[in-house]
Design a protein around this nucleic acid. Structure first.
Lengths: 198, 198
DNA sequence: CCATGAAATGAATGGTGGTTCACTTCTTAC
DNA sequence: GTAAGAAGTGAACCACCATTCATTTCATGG
């Protein structure tokens, strides 16, 4: 027998895998999933198009992987922010602000993750992650209700509504086309809107 | 000279034009703009593909026309509901409920109109109509603030947030996969969320 | 009827882009 | 060194559609 297991080759493969995801995320950040062609990803990652298919069975699979990877990261950031604060209201505010500011730092990516649909499989992944978003807010709301900071309400629904309110407000022309300081003020205002509602 | 002007042929042309829009709307209602191919529209409208180009210069133009037509209709419905009620709160509630119920009657269409992007030109049209949506809610909010029913706030931003909150809540699995009566209750709850926020 | 020009047709065209595969290059084990 | 098998390559293939255009059909006016 020859060539049985793999030692550091595994390392190399993981590296290529990561490179592909990184290249894909960069492309999506620039012009959304519509701009993601297999040829473009391959070039960006410094490999041949055929090689992509050694790592992902299809374009759809690749898109889902890119999407999941990026979203997971965003959710982590927000969850971290949600731990920060003396009371629930403040923690919710921090979570919302983080959500907003990260989205504005990379609007194209945020748009692609939140709204841009592609294939049905990707839409399915998006629904799953929307649920994850809503969960992280819903947990906070539930805690706030228990502690008497918020009034009783259907947490999941409120959380979903919050995600929607933030997302919609963020893609408003008023938001995307104004100065940084104005934007900060507008973020505060949307967050206020959400906090009033709970 | 022969064949100068046109008498009832004009009628016929208008009819074909309407048929095309209707066919397109039907396709979008079934599977979004992604499912809209020129061949499919032509077949559905009972004409040849080439004929489409006598009525619309390109696929993009056709999409924009379908989009505008459908959206215009939706906005009219909501504006009508906004005239109904003894005070501003009630009128806003009616507008929101109408928005929600119409969306649930035809989820695929609603999704296509609110969120699904296609070409940049269509996105532009969408932004215009988002503004129209926001305007119709913003007018109500402004009136409510003036009359002291709502607290002072940036009306446009609140209106946008409202549209987002409603839209997001409506595509929640809990919403799309439950019985009619449960759905009604959930609509009430999202509307409550919005009303608390103003 | 018949001439005229608009309207309709649908097969052919062309561009795009995902996917395949015969071949080359690299890694490992003996 | 060399055999075996994995990884990588990229040109070729193919499906899918928007768009075009030579041809046919239809409506009008003399």
């Amino acid at each position: 027998m020859a060539y049985r297991a793999t030692a550091q080759t595994e390392q190399r493969k993981q590296q290529v895998h990561a490179d592909i995801l990184k290249a894909g995320k960069a492309l999506v950040s620039e012009a959304g999933f519509r701009a993601l062609s297999m040829a473009a990803v391959a070039e960006r990652a410094g490999i041949a198009t055929g090689t992509l298919y050694r790592y992902f069975a299809s374009k759809t699979d690749l898109c889902v992987a890119i999407f999941s990877h990026a979203t997971e990261h965003e959710i982590q950031q927000v969850k971290a922010a949600a731990r920060d604060g003396t009371n629930v209201t403040e923690r919710l505010r921090n979570a919302l602000i983080t959500f907003a500011q990260r989205a504005l730092q990379n609007p194209a990516l945020a748009y692609a993750l939140i709204a841009e649909p592609a294939e049905p499989e990707l839409d399915q992944a998006r629904l799953d992650y929307r649920a994850a978003w809503a969960d992280s807010f819903a947990t906070l709301i539930r805690e706030g209700v228990r502690k008497g900071e918020f009034q009783p309400q259907p947490e999941r629904l409120s959380a979903a509504a919050m995600v929607g309110a933030m997302a919609e407000a963020l893609i408003t022309p008023a938001m995307t086309q104004s100065s940084t300081t104005q934007r900060q003020r507008q973020i505060q205002q949307v967050v206020q809107f959400c906090l009033r509602a709970v």
